[in-house]
């Protein structure tokens, strides 16, 4: 997080020096600052980890937005076609994510990804119950969520 502070200082410096203290000015400064930090990586121990985290978080955000669009299209398809093709089911999924923040992220992301809605977590935080819209193959859904969202969240949080 130290490198992150440095990056913000660089962004503020850029905005102040160009006399353009607006959101876009700060954003340009932040982008340029992170580029400069990326070039001078050998000078700052720990900045490799910072860039890896940034990469993982941006991957999480982009994949999440993509999944949100896919899931909306899927819902639209089921709403607009005359017959309901949904075969709903409630599935139990063991959780690998530890800690409240990780579980919160996983459950929220699962709610916004295609065909699944998190229902409840057991009191011991080990199992997540999911309502799936197309539950023909519960194991496939479990595998998809574990290898997808949950793994990305754990990677980004570590």
């Amino acid at each position: 997080m130290n490198i992150f502070t440095l990056n913000i200082v660089l962004a503020v410096a850029w905005a102040a020096l160009t006399g353009n203290v607006t959101l876009s000015g700060l954003a340009v400064g932040f982008a340029l600052g992170s580029a400069a930090l990326y070039v001078t990586r050998p000078l700052f121990p720990g900045s490799d980890r910072y860039f890896k985290r940034v990469w993982l978080w941006s991957k999480l955000i982009v994949l999440f937005l993509y999944e949100l669009v896919v899931s909306s299209v899927q819902v639209i398809w089921d709403v607009l076609t005359p017959q309901h093709k949904a075969r709903p089911g409630i599935i139990a999924m063991p959780l690998d994510a530890k800690g409240e923040m990780e579980i919160l992220l996983v459950t929220n992301l699962i709610s916004l990804t295609p065909g699944t809605l998190s229902l409840d977590v057991t009191d011991d935080c080990n199992t997540l119950y999911i309502h799936a819209m197309f539950a023909d193959d519960p194991d496939a859904i479990r595998a998809q969520l574990k290898g997808g969202m949950e793994r990305w969240v754990i990677e980004a949080m570590e």
Binding site: L68, V69, S71, S72, V75, I76, V79, A86, L112, L117
Partner: peptide, 29 residues
Amino acid sequence: FFCFVAGLGVLRLPDVLIRMHASTKAGTL
């Protein structure tokens, strides 16, 4: 369009949990 479909989904889909798929995803988007 997404708002319209979300509203239609809340009206048309067969049970509460499935309707929530429409309201959460399409409505938010």
